[in-house]
Design a protein around this nucleic acid. Structure first.
Lengths: 171, 171
DNA sequence: TAGGTTTGTTTCAAACTTGAACCAAGCCTT
DNA sequence: AAGGCTTGGTTCAAGTTTGAAACAAACCTA
């Protein structure tokens, strides 16, 4: 079967997307490294934990939410634990399980860093987009993410499904 | 000044975007690692070189095109050179300069890998989007990238204009 | 209920990235 | 034409990511 090459429009979109995502992640990483001493992913871990029931989550659930591998998460949490932002706890119901819990220190750091982070996201992303574009971005992103999660996904965990709670920090 | 927190719409868009970009880069990296033995960035280096005059480009120009640091590029090119995909050449006009040139082997690898790569991009991205959405994605991405490049607040420095003069691949 | 499979997590080595420090060559200015 | 700044590129150490392998606990199923 012959390759369906990208059309010029697709090629432009693809290149623009690659450039934008690289630059944006870079800018955000730099800002957070500067102001919170950690890269974006690590901040996101704190953020997700802060919004979870009792500010704690099982490793697998956390990895699933963040769309990263368990291995990567293990490394990150180990660092965050060393820094006192997170504490590991045993899981009563399942002795294999490990739970990551946000410490008060971790929460404080998150709290302090959140405004700067939001400001960065805003100034580099949302300030550049119209209201319609924000909607479009969500739809596009959702479509892509959905497609990518359809088949190879990990088994769904039994407890703690998606639950929204109010919080100041965005991941 | 009080923080301008993200609206619910913005928060949804931001989270969807983060998830999508992580998953997409991941999928593409995995496919290319599998089929071409290199991550996406490395493939992109070959790709950019292949489209450049005489299939060669100065390191700085290459880094600029790819939106990555010189340091990162140096490492990548060193690996690619070790693998015989790229050759470093001296620059006549500027003895500081170093030129990365795509080898025939490198071109061959690119050629073999391209169809699979395009198919992956297509199936995970463009097959999920309408024609309008492709256009929207380009506009959104361009807006973001532009903002990030024009903004002087980025590379650790003070005065260097982000836009660099490009030197034609000399020689 | 023993044995095999699956699931949750960590470990390990190799690969990659980061940012600052460095070096050499070009570009002033005087 | 010397001193001093800037630019192009690499190097180095520390940090991060990857993927496969290792482990242990839970879950079958005969």
């Amino acid at each position: 079967m012959t390759t369906r090459w990208l059309t010029p429009e697709e090629q432009r979109a693809w290149r623009a997307y690659i450039a934008a995502s690289l630059l944006l992640e870079d800018a955000i990483d730099r800002q957070l490294q500067q102001d919170a001493g950690m890269p974006h992913l690590y901040y996101s871990i704190l953020s997700v934990l802060s919004e979870s029931p009792e500010r704690r989550l099982r490793m697998t659930d956390l990895a699933e939410r963040l769309k990263i591998t368990r291995s990567r998460l293990t490394y990150a949490v180990t660092r965050l634990e060393k820094d006192g932002m997170v504490r590991r706890e045993a899981c009563r119901h399942d002795k294999r399980g490990s739970i990551a819990a946000l410490t008060d220190d971790g929460f404080a750091v998150l709290d302090r860093a959140a405004p700067g982070h939001v400001e960065t996201v805003r100034s580099f992303l949302f300030d550049r987009l119209s209201k319609e574009q924000v909607g479009q971005l969500e739809e596009i992103s959702t479509a892509i993410a959905q497609g990518l999660q359809e088949d190879g996904t990990r088994p769904a965990s039994d407890d703690v499904p998606w639950r929204r709670r109010s919080s100041t920090a965005c991941s």
